[in-house]
Write a protein that binds this DNA or RNA. Structure first.
Lengths: 195, 195
DNA sequence: GCCGGTTTGGACTGGCCGGTCCAATTTGCG
DNA sequence: CGCAAATTGGACCGGCCAGTCCAAACCGGC
């Protein structure tokens, strides 16, 4: 499928609109009609740019969101050198979710579809988690290199635990509409690594 | 609605069957027809015992599963007195999920429905998480009382972080089909508390 | 300004599935 | 037994919504 500039624009408009719609209402709730309304497109456009229909569109949204999130995390973590940086990263993340009304663009996508209905989405999510963990590991290594973390600490499993804490924090944020679990998880990880 | 013994039996048969069906296929995937087939019931029975239809049934399943989980956690944690107990609890939990094919009866229920479509389910889940955290806090307090955890440790936020780690571990287990995040999260929590 | 391909509009369809309904059967109690 | 209530069977309905289709409009190169 060859796209002109105009087509490209429409396509991304659809992805962004669908993304927003899903964030607000959840994957399962969103109807193609909703996306059409928000993005001012017709059904034929949807199926023109996403021949696989709804599923392909959701997959595209998943890809888009994971890329965004990963880019943000990479940017924040690649210059890790002090506990101040850590604190900054933590506060930014908390603030970001606050700004989104304590919702998460990805979590809804994950457990609803991934694994059963859409193996492809599952694969994207797995890859995303793996990449995120790698980024975290890198960050921890950087702190270790500058002596902030003891040299004999196993940063691999520390990163695994930290990622779990973050994901769980987000999950609990969505469920309970409170953000303190996320804060506690990251803070406890910091405390453990500082010791 | 008054239930005879027979009715009671049918009702629980439906809940258990629906529960199993949901565990296998996910809430969204499951059709009333699937549940009817598995539990050998007719549609009129479903609506007789759950006048609210699908939604009420899912809610009943949610309640059932949370009760089970909470009972299990309470049993395991109420006799906490040593790090051996901790290790046991950890291993049992890991083994339990292994036995379930690295699936979780509750996580699917949570993010799919809770919050948007079914505020009631959301409430049940929130209550469940709160209760679980309370049970964890109790357990930690017990370890603290016997000197295994430093007296000045804030067990409240430690429990919050631990719960986040567990939830995230389960989430990552579902996504990646690996259980090491859950292990790492619990182990790191133990390490942090031991120090 | 003509011609291929791209983009867009929107009516229509077809299946799926939750929910309704009524009638038949069983149960428990006096 | 006899009756009222509980239980069960399953046909049927109707809305919803993803996906299809055809034709119109638009665009860009020559």
């Amino acid at each position: 499928m060859t796209l002109t500039r105009k087509g490209e624009l429409t396509r991304t408009r659809i992805v962004l609109g669908a993304s927003a719609e899903i964030l607000e209402s959840g994957v399962e709730e969103v109807r193609l009609e909703d996306i059409m309304a928000r993005t001012a497109t017709s059904k034929s456009q949807l199926f023109h740019y996403f021949p696989g229909g709804r599923e392909e569109l959701v997959l595209a949204v998943t890809r888009h969101e994971t890329e965004q999130a990963l880019a943000a995390q990479t940017a924040a973590l690649q210059s890790f050198a002090s506990w101040d940086d850590w604190q900054h990263w933590r506060d930014d993340m908390v603030a970001w979710y606050h700004g989104r009304g304590l919702r998460c663009p990805l979590l809804g996508l994950l457990s609803a579809d991934a694994g059963r209905r859409m193996p492809e989405a599952q694969a994207v999510m797995t890859e995303f988690m793996t990449a995120w963990q790698a980024v975290l590991t890198e960050g921890l290594r950087r702190l270790q290199a500058t002596g902030r973390i003891a040299a004999d600490t196993d940063v691999e499993s520390a990163a695994a635990a930290l990622l779990a804490g973050i994901q769980g924090g987000i999950l609990l944020m969505i469920t309970t509409k409170r953000i303190d679990h996320l804060e506690a998880a990251i803070d406890q990880a910091a405390a453990a690594l500082r010791a």
